[in-house]
Design a protein around this nucleic acid. Structure first.
Lengths: 351, 351
DNA sequence: CTGAAAGCGCTTACAG
DNA sequence: CTGAAAGCGCTTACAG
């Protein structure tokens, strides 16, 4: 091990060439005699040379251009407001480096818009892309195009196995369902029934929600104490009146329900109904720390929320792109973030 | 807002002086006419100048020397093995910058050793110190000496209010006790009694444990459903035989105990005893993801562990020192990390 | 195919 | 009290 970090200059001296030549070899810019090249490469290896990122960043006016392609946060998809925060945090930390960031958003309910916006991403001529692959078909096409153009990309929120992504940062969806199952099992009397509610206006998110539901249900046969029934229902039109009617109907038919698991981030809609109906006896558990969920968590209407660290997903995604581009650091392909168990007593630390 | 970041050179030109003079003003090295100085300072403000950290790091062979002063992890204080990991992670990220790190450890059971090692810290001529102020008197003296020498320091694990620390990163101890209280309350039948166990060979850590206990107990009067008794006991000599005897005695006297809360990280010792005695009916809850705790968590003997992110405490502590020294970034004085609720189903993400 | 030079923005001696 | 110069390790454009 060299006592001091090797520099290009050291390599050049050992090889008996100029630093320009060494640089050409290091950057594969060709125009170097094969013999010289091999010799230099050997020395590089011997010296365990790695470039000084600081010097590189200082010099190269080469500005990395990053682009994010994420859903537009709206009143009805408030989950996505946290993601930009992680991006800002990463940008802040990387502020001394020459980086530009563009955020492109698309309509969560509109595949066509995704496609249109993904074209816009290309127009921005990115060096790296971070995206949530909500629409499988369109996202796959987009990712393949990125790969063809040699542009690295990272996934958050979900991933597409058949694409050449650099890394995924997010939830282990199935396992997070299991955690929900365990929590419900712990706080609900063993003879009570459990209601699983999916709220999905369209089929797009079904993969996500289905997988959580599978994880949830997988907990009970072997690990759970609960002996009641698992009942599942779908709400397509999440309008308060419709939800209330449907919920009342199901609860009337199944008077033994002791817990409700909402597979997505809209548990507050269920809590709203329970509140207006004056139903206090069920354990409600849902996902994500939206303001409206947190409100019900604090009031006791929701017992647990499961958090998936949306801001950490984007933060890490950006860092991985940067580390990869500026230092050739290849990240782990899959990084599952912790499944956070949030109650009224520890929620303050998560928001 | 300037379209481009101002450089020293820009300031020099506007002030009609050389960059050397600007630098002298910026670094308060004196030897500058007051008029020149004021003028330059004004321009600095107007231009919102901030130094380019990269250029600074590249140039200055000034190596920051950081020193940590933490307890030596031992078989009986395994909690402290995670802390060095956070330090290594920070060092890794800061690798391109010229930094040296020395880790000094002391005997968790020996105040004299703390004092001796704190002197060693001074010998290392640190630019910044990160420490766990285990022994109040000795740590206060040490911190005051640091302040007197103009050496910034950050706390982890605990803090001393009367010292001039740069930042604290760690648990909100009282609140974490409340979280434990809520969890116990959720999973234990309302008519059962609750046993609180402190394991403390000496009085040193009592502050820590007491505060958690207070938080725990504070939950029940207003927020809890539990109607049973809160019983507390102390174990001074945590030898298996002694624990078992004592535990059996208490459980015999109080047959209604449905949950046990261990205020420190040694819940595995209680779990060991319950296991050997074949007692399965109580909900055990404790702190920290030590291997031996996790073993019992997975086997179901421990129901919840509360995590306090030891590695994140040190990681953030080091980053704060660095950001402060290299960019004058003053961190928030108090940073409470999330109180993690860990079960057998999500523990995999925390270890 | 290769070398010499300029420059990124800062800091550090040194000369006056 | 102030300026001019060298240099940190790299990249880039140019000359040969």
């Amino acid at each position: 091990m060299p006592s001091r970090r090797a520099r290009i200059k050291d390599i050049a001296e050992l090889a008996g060439v100029s630093i320009g030549t060494v640089d050409r070899v290091l950057h594969d810019r060709g125009e170097v005699a094969e013999k010289t090249r091999d010799n230099i490469l050997q020395i590089v290896k011997d010296l365990e040379y790695s470039p000084n990122v600081i010097a590189r960043a200082l010099k190269s006016r080469k500005k990395f251009r990053f682009v994010s392609l994420l859903p537009e946060p709206t009143d009805d998809s408030a989950f996505w407001i946290k993601h930009p925060e992680g991006i800002m945090k990463a940008m802040n930390e990387l502020e001394p480096f020459p980086i530009a960031f563009s955020q492109v958003t698309f309509d969560l309910l509109d595949e066509k818009d995704f496609q249109k916006k993904s074209e816009k991403v290309f127009d921005l001529d990115p060096d790296g892309v971070i995206l949530a692959p909500i629409f499988k078909t369109q996202a796959t096409a987009f990712c393949n195009k990125l790969t063809k153009n040699g542009i690295p990309f990272v996934f958050i929120d979900g991933y597409l196995e058949d694409t050449d992504f650099l890394s995924y940062t997010g939830e282990d969806i199935f396992q997070s369902g299991r955690v929900a199952g365990q929590l419900v099992d712990m706080v609900t009397p063993a003879d009570k029934d459990i209601l699983i509610i999916n709220i999905a206006r369209n089929l797009m998110n079904v993969h996500h929600l289905n997988k959580r539901m599978q994880g949830f249900m997988s907990y009970f046969p072997h690990s759970g104490r609960n002996k009641g029934d698992l009942i599942s229902m779908n709400i397509e039109d999440p309008v308060p009146l419709a939800i209330t009617a449907e919920l009342k109907r199901v609860l009337r038919i199944n008077p033994g329900i002791g817990a409700i698991f909402v597979t997505g981030s809209k548990s507050y809609k269920i809590a709203d109904c329970l509140e207006s109906e004056g139903i206090n006896s069920v354990n409600l558990i849902g996902y994500d720390l939206l303001d409206r969920n947190v409100y019900h968590l604090k009031s006791g209407r929701i017992r647990f929320l499961i958090g998936q660290r949306p801001d950490e997903q984007t933060y890490k995604g950006v860092r991985k792109l940067f580390d990869y581009l500026s230092m050739d650091k290849v990240p782990d392909k899959m990084e599952y973030l912790p499944v956070d168990v949030v109650t009224s007593e520890n929620v303050q630390f998560f928001i």
